[in-house]
Design a protein around this nucleic acid. Structure first.
Lengths: 241, 241
DNA sequence: CGTAAGTTTGAGCAGGTTCAACCGGTGTGG
DNA sequence: CCACACCGGTTGAACCTGCTCAAACTTACG
C-alpha cells in the first residue's frame, strides 16, 4: 500500500492514483484528506452490459463515478413505453443528490467501470467543502444543457435528423479525435433498440435511417456496431442544426 | 426608505420585504448583509407579454428572479422550427450561471414581474456563501428532473397524452389549490402556438385535442384561455402516466 | 364597423409505425 | 458435426397519426 511519493501523487490513495475522476471528475474537488477518507469506503467495480445499476423508485444508498463505458438513464410509462433521458460517460457522476428515491432507472449500456461510495460520505463532504458542491452544480448545469438540446431533437427533428444527431453525439463523446480530425470512428455503445428509445422512434425506423446514411455514403458500418464517419461536416448537414 | 423593524424583517430592505423570492427563492440563502448589498443594485420591473428577456447567443450581464407571470425558454433551429425547453414560474431563478453567453432564448409568455441584478454581484456572493450555491444546485436539479419528465412526453406520448400532460403541468404550477382540491381552474399562460412549440406539435393538432377533451367533458374552456378542470383524475388518466 | 390576430375546422397527404418475414451470427444439444 | 433456436438487425407492405394547406370563425380593438 506504499504510495509512490512525488509531487503529483503525494498523499493520493493508490486506488485513486490513475483515476480519471480525480482530474476531470468530482474527486478533483476533494482535499487529499477527503480523498483518503472517501477512498476507504469506496470500491471500483466492473459491471457487464445490461445490468441494472439503479432501479426506478429504489432507495439510493450510494453514488458512483463512471470510469469507463456508457450508462443509460431511462424512464418508463406504465404501459411499457420507454425513453432514454440521459447518457453518462466517464468521468460523469452518477446519482441524484438530495433525494432518497430515484425517479429514473440506470442501466449499463456497455460494460461499465464504476467507483462507488456511500451516499452519506459524499453528502457530508459536500457540507464541508463548497468546491464539491460547485463541481456538482457545474455538471448538473451541463446535463441540463444537454437535456434541453435533446428536447429540440425529440420535439422538432425528423427521423433522419434524429439519427444523424445521435451519431454526432456519440462520436463527440466516444472518439476523442472527433474534435480535431474531420472524421471519426467508434463502436456504437447502444443497440438499435436503445437508439430508438433514445430518439423516440422505433427500431425499424432507426435501422432504415442508418441504412440510408450508409447508402448515401455519409457513414460506413462494419459488423452492425462499428461506425466510420469520413466527413463529420456531411453528417452535421443532415442533423438539422 | 425606513424599514419597519420587527423580528421577521429586521434588516431586510424595503424592496425585498414582501418578496416571494426571499422565502421560497434564491434570496432566502442570503444573509441580511448580502441581501442589502444585492438590493442596492437590483431593480424590480414589469415586462409585458411577448418581450424578449434574453436573446440566443447574447452576452449575459444580469440574472433575475421571476416574481410573477410565466417565462418561456426556447431553442430554434436554423430553419425556424422552434421548441420550448423550459417554463419558469415564480420564484424561479432566471439565468445560466458560469456562462458568458446564453444558448437559449428567454421570452415573457405572459406579463412578467422580475427582480434583476448584475451577474457579477451574484457570482461574488456565490463564492462567499455556500448556501446560495446549494440553493442553485437544488433548483437546477429540479429543472433537470422536469426536463427529463418532459423528454418522455416529447419522445413517447401521443398528441392526446401530450396535451393532457401539459394541462396538468400548468394546473399544478398556476392553480395553488390544484394539489388539495379534486379540480382546478386557471388561465392558460401560453397561446396555442406556444403550446405547440412546447409539445412538439402543430397548433392545429393542439386545437383539435383541446376540442376533443372539451367534447368529452374532461375540461371546460371559456374565452379560449380560461380552463376549468372538474376532475383532475380524468385528465391524469389521459396523460399516459 | 372593419381589420388583425388567434383559433377552430375540414380534406388530403406523408412520415413513421405496425406487423410480418427474413438474414446472419452464436450458442446449445442430440 | 449438424440441426435448431435465439438474438439483433434489416427489409417490405399496409396502415394511421399527425402534418400541410386552406378556409371559416371568434375575439379584441381601433
Amino acid at each position: 500500500m506504499a504510495d509512490r511519493q512525488d509531487i503529483h501523487t503525494s498523499g493520493v490513495p493508490a486506488l485513486c492514483e490513475a483515476c480519471e475522476a480525480r482530474h476531470r471528475g468530482i474527486c478533483g474537488a476533494l482535499s487529499p484528506d477527503q480523498l483518503l477518507g472517501l477512498s476507504k469506503t469506496s470500491s471500483k467495480q466492473k459491471i457487464e452490459a445490461g445490468a441494472e445499476l439503479v432501479g426506478d423508485q429504489e432507495t439510493i444508498d450510494h453514488y458512483s463515478n463512471v470510469l469507463g463505458g456508457v450508462v443509460k438513464l431511462t424512464k418508463t410509462l406504465s404501459d411499457g413505453r420507454q425513453q432514454i433521458v440521459g447518457l453518462q460517460f466517464a468521468p460523469d457522476f452518477l446519482g441524484r443528490p438530495f433525494r432518497a428515491e430515484s425517479a429514473i432507472n440506470a442501466e449499463a449500456a456497455t460494460d461499465v467501470a464504476l467507483c462507488s461510495f456511500p451516499k452519506a460520505t459524499i453528502e457530508r463532504m459536500m457540507k464541508e467543502s463548497p468546491g464539491l458542491e460547485h463541481l456538482l452544480l457545474t455538471q448538473t448545469l451541463k446535463e441540463l444543457d444537454e437535456a434541453r438540446d435533446w428536447m429540440v431533437t425529440l420535439g422538432r427533428k425528423t427521423a433522419a435528423e434524429k439519427v444523424a444527431s445521435f451519431l454526432l453525439l456519440i462520436a463527440r463523446n466516444i472518439d476523442p479525435t472527433a474534435r480535431t480530425r474531420p472524421g471519426a470512428s467508434f463502436d456504437l455503445p447502444l443497440t438499435r433498440a436503445d437508439i430508438a428509445d433514445f430518439l423516440g422512434l422505433t427500431i425499424e425506423t432507426v435501422s432504415r435511417q442508418l441504412t440510408r446514411l450508409r447508402a448515401d455514403g455519409v457513414i460506413r458500418i462494419e459488423n452492425n456496431r462499428h461506425v466510420v464517419i469520413d466527413h463529420m461536416a456531411r453528417l452535421e448537414a443532415r442533423s438539422g442544426i
